[in-house]
Design a protein around this nucleic acid. Structure first.
Lengths: 199, 199, 199, 199
DNA sequence: TATGAATGAGGATTCATTCAT
DNA sequence: GATGAATGAATCCTCATTCAT
């Protein structure tokens, strides 16, 4: 076992294990011992790399959002026109529950803590703001090109995110309630009919 | 104090106190002692009226959803035409975060527990299903009247709920991010443009 | 087992057990589990009656000093003239190490904590101040009767206490170093020669 | 950095750091990590030079007493007559709390451990014995010169040390309780009146 | 019914000590 | 010699639950 230069490796090992624990046991039902067992390390090591459990939990959600952000950038940013970007973004959002259901599980666990933990609330608020600002960027192009009315733009980011999250949430709770692959078309139609693009 | 017929009174007293505790301290940070103090009863009494803490928590969310259901019935059902009903429903949904922010706080706390507690998951699933079925009812009238295309109807309930919940969630996390009273118009427009009612 | 009106009994039971633990294991080597075992109660009960370990430890020394104070009042106060009182007090002080060696053990343990615990420091400071003020009372009578020169009175309380404590401390550490019963006479002589009473 | 002959330097470095930690945090509140940080070395090095924490702590008090001994020898021994020596010794003792308050802090911390640590008890016992034997030496000269009655000599060492330590202890706990510089005169007077030197 | 004292398992955290590098 | 990552037992404390009153 190497003992030097392990910091990043260990931190990552613990963060990943914590994420698995949240998914398996839930944010508030998992002990530091559970995490250390899942990560195959001693409990002590967790306190060597993180100030305390809360600090670890904060790093976990930060990391989770960081990865989410990365993914958006990779798949959406290379696209050229605003319509493609927006629709790609919608697709991305819509596929999270299927492709990465753990993300929702983790997110819902943290959402439940947000009202009583300002730091968590702040991190989630920032994440939401980011999501909205991506979309705000795309539609700015649409407005400039004269294809999108400014008054529609105002709430479009929040509404787009709302739809995606609301769908995901319902589906996570009850995957039987609708076909999530199928709903993507309706999701897109709803957005498209709202912005009613000018030819 | 009369000692007969206290059952309902006591249960209600404890359930209301628990709700306040969830709002103030959070689902997983509150103890039975906290609840009993908030309800001004002994801890023993809680175990007299509820099987255990989990049972109590289940009653709390059931009661919360029951009241929510009641409210919808009272304000929406008296209306006559489907359009009014749908729009009234949207208004209702959109005003929950402002009128009754505690409902969201409680709901988010339970959502966080859902994945690890099948009973809670079931209750929430049933609640969502109910919400969707109200809307499904209204739009059935619209289809019958020939004012609404059936293919649009399929996902409309889920999409309507999704929008409302998604907006509420973003606003609860960060009330600065948009004007929730203002967004109601856009919410309605989005639904209206999607269903593009036939005259 | 009665469950009502036990507060004082339980507190006392725990305080006494803690004292025994301090004597047997030392202030900083004893765990709450040790105390609860010694008191034949659960660890939980300790937290039912005391805020935390520190609070308990504070009550222990307060109680210890309270009892010490009581003893002085009982044996010294009934006496009439100042000389008898002073000498009785000296006797009392000198006999503590023999009659109640645990008092010294406990006291030394707390003295070691004093510099890092302002509350403990304050309690000990108050205790010392009390001890000195008793003696100051006796000698005031002596001065008024013209049998004691005021300039001698100034430091007499501190010096008397110092001698007693210093002797006790040496003897507690090494009982072989001198005969503590025997040293009492010298202790008294030293005080008497210092105040050199006027006939 | 030379790697040979570092032993004494390193040991001293660690012992001094430990002393500072005892003063700052207290004997039982300081960790090996605290010590290593204070000494600017790794924790591993401490176990290279000392068997374990207890061993280190033992070396610390030994060193502390060794230095104290050295100081007495330097200032008192050069003097010629027994009276000067005794009074100089008293002065020394009385000035420790002011000149080197850390000595008292350290000493009180170890005194608290003594009853539960025979080794510490032994070291302190030996230290006290040393202190008494210095004084015993001086007064032997006084007896031989016929200026001091043998019966007074018996307990004089213990009483002198007792006074000094008792004063110091009271003053360390509450420096407001008396003027320690001022009390020196009374301290000396008390000793002088007791031995009532023959002209 | 109603109380709250009592239990003890379990949780977060610390820390002396070891050991691969 | 020197480092500090790693361990895991032990500590303080909380809390759901029970039960004598």
């Amino acid at each position: 076992m190497p003992k030097i230069g392990m910091e990043e490796i260990r931190k990552d090992q613990v963060i990943k294990a914590t994420e698995r624990c949240i998914v398996e046991k839930g944010y508030s039902n998992m002990s530091v011992k559970d995490i250390s067992a899942e990560a195959s390390v001693s409990t002590g090591i967790i306190y060597h790399y993180f100030k305390n459990k809360e600090d670890l939990l904060l790093q976990v959600i930060k990391e989770s959002f960081r990865k989410s952000h990365e993914q958006v950038m990779e798949t959406v940013e290379p696209l050229n026109n605003f319509e493609e970007k927006l629709m790609k973004h919608i697709e991305n959002i819509n596929r999270v529950p299927m492709d990465n259901p753990d993300f929702y599980t983790v997110m819902l666990n943290y959402l439940g803590q947000a009202k009583n933990n300002p730091e968590i609330n702040g991190i989630i608020a920032k994440f939401f703001k980011n999501l909205r600002s991506y979309i705000a960027q795309y539609i700015k192009d649409g407005i400039e090109l004269g294809r999108l009315k400014p008054e529609k733009a105002k709430h479009l980011p929040a509404l787009t995110i709302a739809l995606g999250m609301g769908i995901g949430m319902q589906w996570i709770i009850d995957p039987e309630s609708f076909d999530i692959a199928d709903i993507e078309k309706s999701y897109k139609e709803m957005i498209e009919s709202y912005i009613s693009l000018e030819e």
